[in-house]
Design a protein around this nucleic acid. Structure first.
Lengths: 345, 345
DNA sequence: ACGGTTTGTGCAAACGTTTTAACAAACGGG
DNA sequence: CCCGTTTGTTAAAACGTTTGCACAAACCGT
């Protein structure tokens, strides 16, 4: 059917082993044979069969990225796409292919990963964000299969991971509002079982406590990484007798909901409410008004994750060291955040 | 190292062949042996090695999706993510894995595909959109490797493809503006070498000609699938002595640029300019004002592409028939399009 | 009771590589 | 000129499956 190493060997008058060695640049191959064999390979249009290769080398030169269960909802897409672009770009550069895996339910998710891992279809995995006790983390860790987590695991600190310092990011965002004179600052958070939500909440609290500002529980709303979440949060918040003058919102998509809600209620941004958001998706810049947002370098995050993973895959298991990479973030100030109005309280 | 079919066979006191047959539900295996073998598999934690399987079956149970060269630019992400979600979901359902491939340059792109195809790493490919004479299409077609194109190939109509009827979609969008009374309608298009741009342009022309409206070349701007493209288009258009009252814009992202441009110039939407856009990304709804946009069912597009491809992969080459699936679109009217102002010209 | 069919299982080859061990030839130093 | 290296090549086993062929046992109709 298709041309194999044997065909090449026969035509070149050498053994298959020799051809294989030519392919892998074995030092003890004479220049003459090498040239000859390469010529024949070209002529016959030979291409190595990866499956055969994998079988003997026990290595697939591919990694998988595992999307969290409801990829349809969380972080809505744009964010993941950036991340994946980074992963794919880096992997390609190291000669790795990238497989995408996701499941409809949490059970399916583990099952899908199990298929890939047990079937030795991939050499490593990139796990995108995780819940508090993520079953996929448990699964991979137990099998000690190489993987890197984009995000942070509360239960397992001794893990390869690439993350944003979300506590600091939220702290910085809050400081920004504080430095603009805001004293009544609220927070629209994400799902309370996701580590990223938890961390951002901490940063928010820390900044407010440190500045001696009131932490009012009715100004803190938890929700999803969905537009609607922001919309609903506004209905609640803006009907309170005492309203915040500034707001941290856990994600740009959610912020869109916030803005929509405010518009409907007749409030203006940033005059009535200053907003700082996270992730700095393309949306943030395109919004009207453009949203101040903490850029967490999604592409970079993905790129580093891929790099870290592949490095791990290629070192002997006993020499692998758990590393935690922190990708720097930076606040991009746009029009959604402005000085606090003078009349306090 | 890890448990193989032989280990299971030995422990169960049968031959490897028998175990293999149990695995594939061969009809001539006694219920007793089957039960026994399965028990042992469970006990030993056996999982088939996909590489070995692939080697003999010459089938990998995976497909790849090929992103167009500058995925960073074209259609900006959201659109592709939806498509990919559809592809992955359907593939998973059929037991296939999905590999993502993309290259930095056009050459790299072909090379990346060649690696996957020649290395027999995937059984088929989904190609996302294509340029007028796409080298990847040529490559795959020549090798007659199973693939489906999301989009349309001008040069090769006899190909598996899944597409929107973009001519009709643009026609519908234009008709919408016309029915609102607009008589001066412009068009912000995409790259002129992409089939999708070409088709939408045709639909636009067709509707205007049919209605006897003027087709003014200074109201037609070609560009990229980028926000900036829309922004620049506005600078040009709105400074003309005669301005359109309605506008078709090839993509929601581009529309964001249009809106930004208009805002800066002090024009209002839809009062000064009605806009209808394409793709109906999450952005369209979130924009202010919300954008009227033609929904082309990206997820559905991906889902169908995957399904079509896998069906093709699983039928004998001689029985494969070129099919062209058209996914229905529909115009979602929002606030960006309104009745034309009464004072004409 | 006998031949023919059906049912259940095993043997061994095949898939396309890599790699270890062995070996022949060429080389080089005394 | 002989012996120990170095250099270039090969034969064969291994990786973990599937599958065609062969074969024994059980079954069935006459």
């Amino acid at each position: 059917m298709s041309v194999t190493i044997k065909d090449v060997a026969k035509k070149a008058g050498v053994s298959p082993s020799t051809v294989s060695r030519v392919l892998s640049n074995h030092p003890r191959i004479s220049a003459a044979t090498s040239r000859k064999v390469r010529e024949i390979m070209e002529e016959l249009g030979y291409h190595p069969n990866m499956m055969a290769k994998s079988l003997v080398s026990k290595t697939t030169k591919s990694i998988c990225v595992i999307l969290p269960k409801p990829a349809e909802e969380l972080f809505l897409n744009l964010f993941f796409m950036e991340l994946i672009r980074g992963i794919v770009a880096q992997a390609a550069r190291s000669g790795y292919d990238v497989l995408i895996s996701s499941g409809a339910s949490e059970a399916e998710e583990v099952e899908a990963v199990a298929r890939l891992v047990n079937g030795r279809r991939v050499d490593g995995a990139v796990l995108l964000y995780s819940r508090k006790d993520d079953p996929v983390v448990e699964f991979l860790k137990e099998r000690n299969f190489p993987f890197v987590l984009v995000g942070r695991s509360e239960r397992h600190p001794d893990i390869l991971s690439v993350d944003t310092d979300n506590v600091q990011a939220a702290y910085d965002a809050a400081r920004h509002l504080i430095s603009l004179g805001h004293e009544r600052i609220g927070f629209v958070g994400g799902p309370p079982n996701m580590v990223v939500s938890i961390d951002r909440m901490h940063g928010y609290r820390k900044a407010l406590e440190e500045a001696g500002l009131p932490l009012r529980s009715d100004w803190i709303v938890e929700g999803e990484f969905l537009q609607d979440s922001g919309y609903r949060a506004m209905s609640l918040l803006m009907n309170l007798p005492e309203r915040p003058s500034g707001m941290l919102v856990v994600d740009d998509f959610v912020t869109f909901g916030v803005i929509r809600g405010l518009n409907e209620l007749g409030y203006r941004i940033p005059q009535d409410l200053s907003i700082v958001s996270f992730n700095n998706l393309a949306l943030a810049e395109l919004s009207s008004p453009p949203i101040s947002s903490v850029d967490i370098g999604s592409y970079h995050l993905g790129y580093t994750a891929s790099q870290t993973l592949i490095r791990a895959v290629e070192t002997a298991p006993e020499e692998r060291m758990p590393v935690r990479h922190i990708i720097p973030h930076r606040l991009i100030v746009r029009e959604s955040s402005l000085y606090a109005p003078l009349n306090k309280a």
